[in-house]
């Protein structure tokens, strides 16, 4: 199994922003393993945590995310442990 990494996005919080991000992943055939999101503070911005494969296309994904106008910041969270997300996904995959 390929190692995963978390991309942390800060985005404008409006109705279309999630389609912009998921649309990018589907049309560029990037893998998106998991996604977690929620509003920040007063709700003008949101945070998204994307669990993606750590492979040769990671740079491309980051470059394309940076081009989206609703994306304010892109961070690669190599420091944080992704135990929480991984546990959530493990829970899902073990479901029958």
């Amino acid at each position: 199994m390929t190692a995963n990494i978390i991309i942390e996005l800060t985005v404008q919080n409006h109705a279309g922003v999630l389609s912009h991000i998921t649309g990018l992943f589907s049309r560029r055939a990037f893998n998106l393993e998991g996604i977690l999101c929620g509003p920040v503070g007063d709700g003008t911005t949101s945070k998204l945590y994307l669990l993606v494969n750590k492979d040769a296309r990671l740079d491309q994904i980051v470059n394309h995310l940076k081009k989206l106008y609703d994306v304010i910041e892109v961070l690669l969270r190599e420091d944080s442990d992704n135990t929480l997300l991984n546990q959530l996904f493990k829970l899902l995959t073990s479901e029958k």
Binding site: A15, G16, S19, H20, G23, R27, L68, Y69
Partner: peptide, 14 residues
């Protein structure tokens, strides 16, 4: 229109 033009524009607005 927003959904239809999303993948074919540099950016779009509703």
């Amino acid at each position: 229109t927003y959904g239809l033009t999303l993948p074919i524009t540099k950016h779009n607005f509703l």
